[in-house]
Design a protein around this nucleic acid. Structure first.
Length: 502
RNA sequence: GCCGCGGUAGUAUAGCCCGGUCAAGUAUGCGGGCCUUUCGAGCCCGUGACCCGGGUUCAAAUCCCGGCCGCGGCACCA
């Protein structure tokens, strides 16, 4: 059951509701980004409004855009079921920002400051303005043009928005709206070295929200201060600020979500990709077989709140399992395989050729046959940990096949005897039901499984029919868990999969 | 230097704005039962919590004050 979203504030003030999602394309987006994205989209839809996607790529130096991220983010949004009506890239709107800057300076709402970061900081903490604060707008405009023409190097000149020297929070005082970035050294992936004067987030985002007619902003709580900053631009230009809803953070327990940590893992581990199953990126979740509906469900459940929420992986797995269980084919696979020889299995064809459904209730998934051959002894693999069950009780039930009892065991050779096919007898005897894989016909199966911050490859064997499924299929390995197939090599009889959850 | 947020069962959260319907809801976990050729899923039953202290009130998880603990953010990142 999905919770209904609370109504947006002051919708009646606007002709149409316009919301936006504005990621920095410096990296792939993660579950945390899904919250504002999904909520903004949902609200736009609910109010028959407009949803805008805006790439905020105005820092070619520190948060340098990743060329492939633009497309990857769009892909991830589509995966989530999000579509957008308008799309913008800030680095393509530079002239617009310059125009607004000129107007703001002309109105005395901003000035060009040549004091340098440290000097300004010192003055600011004493609540004193720097000399440039009082220069005439014409002077600032002139300096601004010099900035644009490349006259100043990095750190030599900035445009500051005039706020209030008496502000108790010094970080608000005359914040920087434009700075110089040496794009000959740090070229922007889209515009190269065409621009050297770049708007800061607060300027570009603040201006764009106005220019794009955004009515309701849903963004992270960490932006609370930014709203106050942007308000000075709005006031100076006589604009009215949109409605703002600050959202708390969404974390995923046991998963690496932060960009910096992901990048660190990426640096350290050669085989890790941006969709590494340990990450909380949307592509990682997708790779692990988490359904987009589940992400949606979680985000809507957590709701439109300013409080942080930590989602437990158990919860994610549980929600996903509920949706996946009815449609995932069930296959037997064993890990750490041990060969078990079964004597005395009748050569009855109905016993030696098993026809098994892929799902107990979902008939549309079909079935497969397992041929156990006609040799005197039937040989199967079971998992080593299940061998203990056999040793403890002296007997075991091989699922869908027969009951066996232990005869002898030495080293890796386990001799057992067929004792019948009756499930009821096994039940009454309290035998464990165990999955198995025939020796004469099976495929190799490697499952990549995150364990804490590590990653392990479980090497095992699976029923041969596994190669009949294509990459991307979610299958349930009986008594093991759900895995998503990644690579299926039918000829080589090998399958690679990623562990989804229990 | 400054700004802000939060502390509810093992875990994650709802409720708090607008005090009574909260002897606190949901999910997960755990225990038990039913069902089942999985130790899974489903269904049923059960388990277990309002950080501490003070105040306001007929009544406080909810409002106020203090304390303790945890977390986040800004200052030419977005």
């Amino acid at each position: 059951m999905e919770r209904a979203l609370p109504p947006l504030p002051n919708v009646e003030k606007y002709r149409v509701v316009r919301t936006r999602f504005a990621p920095n394309p410096d990296f792939y987006i993660h579950l945390g980004n899904a919250r504002p994205a999904l909520l903004s989209y949902e609200y736009a839809r609910e109010y028959r409004g407009v949803f805008i996607l805006r790439f905020e790529d105005t820092d070619p130096r520190i948060k340098r855009p990743l060329p492939e991220a633009y497309g990857a983010i769009k892909e991830d949004l589509k995966w989530l079921g999000i579509s957008w009506d308008e799309e913008y890239v800030q680095s393509a709107r530079m002239e617009l920002y310059y125009g607004v800057a000129r107007e703001l300076i002309a109105r005395g709402g901003a000035y060009v400051d040549l004091c340098g970061r440290e000097e300004f900081r010192k003055l600011k903490l004493e609540r004193r303005g720097c000399p440039h604060r009082d220069q005439r707008p014409e002077e600032s405009l002139e300096l601004f043009d010099k900035m644009l023409s490349g006259h100043f190097g990095e750190g030599e000149a900035v445009v500051r928005v005039k706020t209030d020297l008496a502000l108790s929070d010094p970080s608000l005082i005359d914040w920087v709206a434009f700075r110089v970035v040496d794009t000959s050294k740090h070229p922007h992936p889209l515009t190269g070295d065409r621009y050297v004067v770049w708007p800061t987030y607060n300027f570009a985002a603040g201006v764009d929200d106005r220019l794009m007619g955004v009515t309701h902003i849903l963004r992270g709580r960490e932006h609370a201060l930014n709203t106050l900053k942007q308000l000075y631009v709005y006031r100076a230009l006589g604009w009215e600020y949109p409605e703002v809803i600050n959202l708390g953070r969404l974390r995923l327990e046991g998963m690496i979500l932060s960009k910096s940590k992901i990048k660190e893992v990426l640096r350290r581990s050669r085989r890790a990709g941006t969709d590494d199953p340990r990450f909380g990126t949307l592509r990682s979740l997708r790779r692990r077989g988490i359904l987009p509906e589940v992400v949606r469900e979680i985000v809507l459940e957590v709701g439109v709140k300013g409080t942080d929420a930590t989602i437990s992986w158990e919860n994610v797995a549980s929600l996903n399992r509920r949706r996946v269980d009815p449609v995932a084919p069930r296959i037997m696979a064993v890990f750490d395989p041990v060969r078990v020889v079964i004597r005395g299995v009748p050569r009855d064809p109905s016993l030696r050729t098993l026809r098994l459904d892929y799902h107990p209730t979902n008939a549309s998934l079909g079935s497969r046959t397992i041929d156990l051959g006609r040799e005197e002894a039937v040989e199967l693999f079971v998992s080593r940990e299940d061998l203990h069950l056999l040793k403890e009780r002296g007997a075991l039930r091989l699922m869908e096949f027969c009951n066996i009892s232990l005869e002898s065991e030495s080293g890796d050779r386990v001799e057992t005897r067929f004792t019948g096919t009756e499930l009821e007898i096994a039940r009454k005897a309290g035998l464990k039901l165990v999955q198995w894989v025939p020796v004469r016909d099976h495929v190799r199966l490697d499952v990549l499984k995150p364990e804490g911050l590590g990653l392990r490859t479980l090497r095992g064997l699976a029923e041969a029919s596994l190669v009949g499924f294509g990459p991307g299929t979610l299958v349930q390995l009986v008594r093991v868990g759900f895995v998503k197939l990644e690579d299926v090599y039918a000829k080589e009889r090998k399958v690679k999969a990623v562990y989804a959850h229990d």
